[in-house]
Nucleic acid binder design. Structure first.
Lengths: 224, 224
DNA sequence: TAAATAGTGTCTATTAGACAATATTAG
DNA sequence: CTAATATTGTCTAATAGACACTATTTA
């Protein structure tokens, strides 16, 4: 059991942690990166915030260590600091949400992509953290460019649609999807077209900005 | 400068803080409770999380001390933990949003209600925290029963409208407002009517639940 | 009755879901 | 040409803003 005491003589948190819900979408499924721990439970990748480090930097540093990915979409989710949440001691965790492209491979052999909405035996309070992350990403989907994290620099609308469907956990009519995504003003045509396999080649689009930003505020029905 | 070291020999946070953005609405204005500190800056009410205490409990405890109010609408906003945010040392803060009825009086003589959207000289990172709180409460207004925190147990629609207008920072057509608030399913008629002054007495309504809950998901334009 | 406040009805523009119809490619 | 995928167009239902009109009270 870790403990700490501050210079004023009071008990202090033993450390400050970061846990990250790293999401991607592949084949219509929303996936989360999880490590397997000894007792068979799943755990989120995370680490301890260093002195003088911002929690978001910690999250990015740990993600780079575990997946080699840099330039990731990261945002803070919430603080989880209920007493007893960490068996090591008083260690509040600042949970983060991150999104990466589907070809991202974990370096850590214990880490694997698992279905984000599947039933898993999560360690500690990680089930709550994952649920919070799913709510967040679903809620932001049509008002922000969160999907930037998963989609490549340029993409056809059909690709964007499978990502959006994985996140929203529903199906969109291709025509309606195209109309509505364009109407958000978040994307713009690159002028290029793709052409893989049979069928008419698709026009490629890119996000007008890849920095986290807020859309025009168009609503969209999620799965009920 | 406070410091702390944990039992493993590493530097640890000197303490865990809570800062609360306590809002109310009065006369069409959104107000926030602020204390005046020695150098003239404003600061949010807050305190340190005790060992074995949840941050939300800390927030409630401190609010009870400063305003005497119990049974407050409280939710977590976000963690603010950038290095250097607190001049006393490494002290992350978990910011909370709270809403109380407009007749709530501060006990602390240094604390006062000030306009939430006014220009004030906030101490530390409290300006960021207030801005985050305003975005949150505006964003949730029409999808949740946040206004429960400000409105009394039963109220006429005109009263609800002034509160909603203060939060959204815009004006609603009375007829449209009534139609749309009823359509959210968040409120129900009590069967009573009020009758103060001239004019037709207003039917009274109450929230179907006073626990934080999420509405039917109806959109509403906010001030641009 | 006049003034004041509460509540109802309706018109219109916007948005979203559904789906038919057309366009462009590979084989 | 046929199959496959992309894109356009259109119909309809729901929603939100605006505002005229009706209802009920006090003075």
């Amino acid at each position: 059991m870790w403990t700490a005491r501050n210079s004023e003589g009071y008990e202090a948190p033993a450390a400050l942690a970061v846990d990250t819900v790293l999401l991607t979408a592949r084949a219509g499924d929303l996936l989360v990166l999880a490590t397997q721990i000894d007792d068979g439970h799943r755990a989120l990748p995370g680490g301890l915030v260093g002195a003088g480090e911002s929690p978001e930097d910690t999250a990015r540093r740990k993600l780079a260590e575990k997946t080699g990915v840099t330039d990731v979409y990261v945002e803070q989710l919430a603080a989880f600091a209920n007493p007893g949440r960490d068996p090591r001691g008083w260690i509040p965790s600042i949970a983060h949400l991150a999104l990466v492209p589907p070809d991202t491979k974990p370096r850590d052999p214990d880490a694997a992509w698992i279905t984000a909405r599947g039933r898993h035996r999560w360690a500690f309070d990680h089930h709550d953290i994952v649920r919070t992350a799913l709510n967040r990403v679903e809620g932001k989907l049509w008002w922000s460019n969160v999907a930037v994290g998963i989609l490549p620099a340029s993409f056809p609308l059909s690709k964007a649609r499978t990502v959006y469907e994985a996140i929203a956990h529903t199906h969109y009519d291709p025509a309606t999807f195209a109309r509505d995504l364009k109407a958000t003003g978040l994307i713009e045509p690159t002028g290029e077209t793709s052409a893989q396999g049979p069928g008419r080649p698709a026009a490629l689009y890119r996000f007008t900005t890849r920095d986290p930003s807020w859309g025009a505020g168009r609503r969209k029905r999620m799965a009920t």
